[in-house]
C-alpha cells in the first residue's frame, strides 16, 4: 500500500470507489485535479466515471456528467442494469438549455446529493435551426453549464464523456492552446474533473493530441488484456500529481454492484 506523506495527509481526496485501488493512491484523487480516464472501447470508462459521481452524490455532493455521444436514456438504462439504485440520489437531466435555471432550482431544493446528466445530443436536436453566430461554440455550452451550476449550486465533480467527441463538436485548429485554456478553466472552477479519453485500438497513445497527457494532473488507464482466451480488464495509475501511488497493474472487476481491483498485476497462476 502506498504511504501517505505528512503534507499529502491534509489533502482532501476524491475516492474512485474501486475497492483495493483507492488504498494504492493515498485514498483517492486530490480534490480539484483534472484526471484522464483512458481506455479502448468496452473498458468501462464511462461506468467507472459514473460510479464516482453516484457514490459522491450518495455523500450529498452535486456532480455533473456531460455526455456528448451516449443519450441520457441509454446511459441510465446501462447504469440501472449494473444495479445502481438511482432513487437514492437526485437525478436531474438537462436536455433543454433554456430551462437550465429551473433545473438548477430543483438541485438547490434537493435534500440528497445530485447527479446532473447533460445530454448534448438532445440539446443539439433542440437547437437545430437556431443560428448560433460566428463565435458560437459547443465548448462554450459546456463551459456555460458548468459556470451556471458552479455559481448557483455547490457542484464539485464533473465528467466529460468524451474528449474524442468534443474534438468533433468544436474546432481544435490549435489544440495545444485550446486544451491549455480548457484545463485552466476546469482548474479555475475548482472542479474535480474526469475526462474520458478513447484510446486507439493499438493503444499507441493515451489521448488524441497527446498534449492532454501533460496537461492532466492524473491518468488512469483501463485496458482489456487477453489471457488464455479470457479477456480481463486491468486498471493502473499512469500518473497522479501530489500522490504517492502504486503504479502496478490491477485486475478490474465489477461484481455485487461494486468495482474491485485485485491481484496486483501478477498473471494468474496456471
Amino acid at each position: 500500500m502506498a504511504k501517505k506523506s505528512e503534507k499529502n495527509e491534509k489533502m482532501e481526496r476524491i475516492k474512485l470507489y474501486i475497492d483495493g485501488f483507492d488504498q494504492q493512491m493515498e485514498g483517492g484523487i486530490p480534490k480539484g485535479h483534472v484526471t484522464l480516464i483512458c481506455g479502448t472501447a468496452g473498458t468501462m470508462k464511462s461506468s467507472l466515471a459514473f460510479n464516482v459521481l453516484y457514490n459522491e452524490a450518495l455523500n450529498g455532493k452535486t456532480c455533473l456528467y456531460v455526455s456528448l455521444e451516449q443519450s441520457e436514456k441509454s446511459l441510465l438504462e446501462h447504469v440501472e442494469n449494473m444495479g445502481y439504485d438511482l432513487s437514492k440520489i437526485n437525478l436531474v437531466t438537462i436536455s433543454d438549455i433554456s430551462k437550465l435555471n429551473s433545473d438548477i432550482s430543483s438541485i438547490k431544493s434537493s435534500k440528497v446529493g445530485s447527479v446532473i446528466i447533460s445530454d448534448l445530443g438532445s440539446i443539439r436536436k433542440q437547437v437545430r435551426g437556431t443560428k448560433i453566430g460566428p463565435s458560437g461554440d459547443w465548448l462554450n455550452v459546456i463551459k456555460n453549464i458548468i459556470k451556471k451550476l458552479k455559481e448557483k449550486t455547490e457542484c464539485d465533480l464533473f465528467v466529460l464523456d468524451s474528449l474524442s467527441a468534443l474534438y468533433v463538436l468544436s474546432s481544435f485548429d490549435d489544440p495545444r492552446t485550446k486544451l491549455f485554456y480548457i484545463f485552466e478553466f476546469l482548474r479555475d472552477m475548482g472542479l474535480t474533473t474526469f475526462l474520458i479519453s478513447e484510446m486507439p485500438l493499438n493503444k499507441s497513445k493515451y489521448s488524441e493530441y497527446e498534449v492532454e497527457d501533460y496537461l492532466a494532473d492524473g491518468i488512469i488507464l483501463i485496458q482489456l488484456t487477453e489471457r488464455f482466451r479470457k479477456v480481463v480488464r486491468e486498471v493502473s495509475v499512469v500518473k497522479m500529481r501530489s500522490t504517492n501511488c502504486n503504479t502496478d497493474v490491477f485486475t478490474l472487476e465489477y461484481r455485487n454492484k461494486k468495482f474491485y481491483a485485485t491481484q496486483g498485476g501478477k498473471p494468474p497462476i496456471v
Binding site: 437550465l100 433542440q126 437556431t130 448560433i132 453566430g133 463565435s135 461554440d137 462554450n140 453549464i145
Partner: peptide
C-alpha cells in the same frame, strides 16, 4: 442575443 444563443458564447470574449 437570445438565451440559447448566449449559451454558445464565451461571455468574456464574445
Amino acid at each position: 442575443v437570445d438565451e440559447i444563443q448566449q449559451m454558445f458564447l464565451d461571455e468574456e470574449t464574445a
